[in-house]
Design a binder for these strands. Structure first.
Lengths: 147, 147
DNA sequence: ATGTTAAATAAGAATAATTATCATTTAATA
DNA sequence: TATTAAATGATAATTATTCTTATTTAACAT
């Protein structure tokens, strides 16, 4: 089964287990999050779904993301300019590489930061639960386009 | 000279070099950013300065942060919940450790991520300019307070 | 199959952080 | 001290997100 199909099933299953109803709108949102290779914003998701559900409300997208986030099945990437983006395909912390020109967000396949995490825990006395690592730069496309 | 005094002078000097006026309000903001051990939010800064300048406008704080950011002399830490925080003492990327209970933000003294950066550049074809590494967890104080 | 009910949705109002506007004030320079 | 472009203060505008409420509907029991 394709990766995003599997993720879709996992998230739907988890929703069921938590007594949530499976509505068509909810399924549409989960479907996009399960793929989410492009790290869509709430508006991206809303626009995409409006093709099938012209009455889909933005509030519904927000509500469902909060819900799915609370189940640990989507990763939220917040940015200072207030355009959060989401990854429901790999909901665990992993490095992202972000183009500051075209705003593309891609995944990196770097190894884990467990060693660093342990160092930080010892150094600070924190119980570390989570982390986030982003690299910012310019992608090869945007580099080629520079005038 | 104390660390934050030095930072203050550096930032003021850079403002001068760029033809910016040195106003009392601007100095007050730079002074707080130069210290900024607590990684203050815009509101924190505004509240602090209002003690000396009761008429200080929020807009002035925002404007000056944008300006100082454009000079590369303050690091902006954006969070999904829309409460950005600032570090003008160490304006270059460095790991932060954030308590998810009391929202405290402290610095970590981990070594550099230059090796990782190079790996990512090779892997993705990006020109990497910047990065951000945050660890989220619970600080020892909050851990002790749990009921 | 159908009725019941608590939860979900749609639409739009409310909120909160940030940015823009514009009249007034002021730092820098002559 | 006068001049002038830039900075400030006050507030309106904007934008992302959350809240509210009437309506609809998925899930379950009959």
């Amino acid at each position: 089964m394709a990766d995003h199909k599997k993720r879709f099933e996992i998230i739907i299953q988890k929703l069921r287990e938590n007594g949530q109803k499976i509505t068509p709108q909810r399924m549409a949102i989960v479907k996009i999050l399960a793929k989410s290779t492009g790290h869509p914003s709430v508006e991206d998701i809303h626009d995409e779904i409006k093709k099938d559900f012209p009455t889909m409300s933005l509030a519904t997208v927000y509500r469902n993301i909060v819900l799915i986030k609370s189940l640990g099945e989507v990763l939220e990437l917040g940015f200072p300019d207030g355009r959060n983006r989401y990854d429901g395909n790999k909901p665990y912390p992993h490095p992202h590489v972000i183009c500051i020109k075209c705003k593309k967000v891609i995944d990196s396949n770097l190894g884990s930061l467990d060693d660093l995490k342990d160092e930080v825990a010892v150094e600070t006395g924190f119980k570390i639960l989570n982390h986030r690592l982003d690299f910012f730069g310019i992608c090869s496309n945007c580099m080629a386009e520079k005038v």
